[in-house]
Design a protein around this nucleic acid. Structure first.
Lengths: 124, 124, 124, 124
DNA sequence: GTGGTCTAGACCACC
DNA sequence: GTGGTCTAGACCACA
């Protein structure tokens, strides 16, 4: 896997996993890949995965059974969506709106850019 | 001034200054606050302001006259708006759109949230 | 059964069983649940129960008849109480007292909290 | 420094530091020892201190100024006392009371043990 | 100087 | 097998 810079790898892994859960790749309570397994897949150090999993565990998105592995939390998808949504609306949207205003992008134009985005996504 | 974490302070200062210029706080070619002055105001180390100014200088948003000070570039506002706009559309919008889709926020809802934002801003 | 983390599951099971014995759920020398039975009830691996029973056996709180099962020891309740009491006074109380002092909880207040605890317990 | 086993070293360091803050060793907002400094003092790896500090930061007991160091939070002592108190009363006291009942230790006896504890402490 | 991240590798307890 | 902790050491960005 390719990692961007500017955000720690462990956070990118955490984001990636919570996105996967959000998209329903695992059922509620289903076991997710073990630390070592994921570390090999992503070609990172197990410690880095542990850190990512620890982070998700604090957010109560996954939980741990000792000696067995990590599991997607009950209603993990809904919970994540709720948390992320609130976070997004409160923390990121205001700043995004401010930028839109400063740059003179209104909702009409944003809508068109969004259409564009979706078309390009379909094409790929 | 309060600084977020996750973005270097010097970048936050640079963003803040270019926002001010964008909003027309200084005419083209007008002198902007000196390094020391701004450092005192923002309660940061002068080195940090120097770095911020250096960054803005690379973006050709301000320029420096040795021994005199820093000045807003000609057509600084337009230049900034152009740069920032391209940056925003190419680098940040795709990720924002992806998040919107994941969280199930469509343009309608975003429009309403934007209205809200503007109302709250007026009120304050 | 729900297990806390911070203490191994097998220890939590052992504590739970010795508490049951302390409360007189089984007479001296009475047979306690088999490993498999308990494992199913608690939804844990039989190995974990074996470990818990082994631990209790070391403390001479239960004993084993090969091929038959595990039994509460003679005067098990008294024995447990003695062991636990010493353990508690020597190992845990000092730390508890230290915490009480740091938090500014005196014996008066502790007494009231204890009353509360007993009331809530009766109510449930 | 001597570390017990059963609780990770980084948690013991965190507990130790928050105890120090609770006891008023640092004023509100005063700088606490740097990661490296403390690591040398305690003869542990800097990573271990970072982890302890990260833990305290999540609890909002200390905060960080990048490139400068860690600082005791405003009203850190009161905040800690509040958090710890609630934690103690809700999470630990019920279990302690349960044990006291099981072992047949009443408030009178506990009071005497407490006196003992204080005497021994003064003597040392 | 400060903290933060990552890797590598060892060791442990637990299931 | 599982996760968790700790060490050692390198490297980086930031103030």
């Amino acid at each position: 896997m390719q990692f961007k810079q500017g955000l720690p790898i462990y956070r990118q892994i955490a984001d990636h996993m919570s996105e996967q859960i959000l998209l329903g790749h695992w059922e509620d309570g289903e076991r997710i890949p073990s630390v070592r397994e994921l570390a090999v897949n992503l070609e990172v150090n197990p410690n880095t995965v542990i850190r990512a999993y620890g982070y998700l565990q604090e957010e109560e998105v996954i939980y741990n059974k000792r000696g067995i592995g990590y599991f997607a939390a009950e209603q993990a998808a809904d919970k994540i969506r709720g948390i992320k949504r609130k976070e997004f609306v409160v923390l990121r949207l205001p700043e995004i709106f401010k930028t839109l205003e400063l740059l003179g992008i209104d909702m009409d134009e944003l809508g068109k850019l969004f259409q564009n985005y979706k078309l390009r996504k379909e094409a790929s």
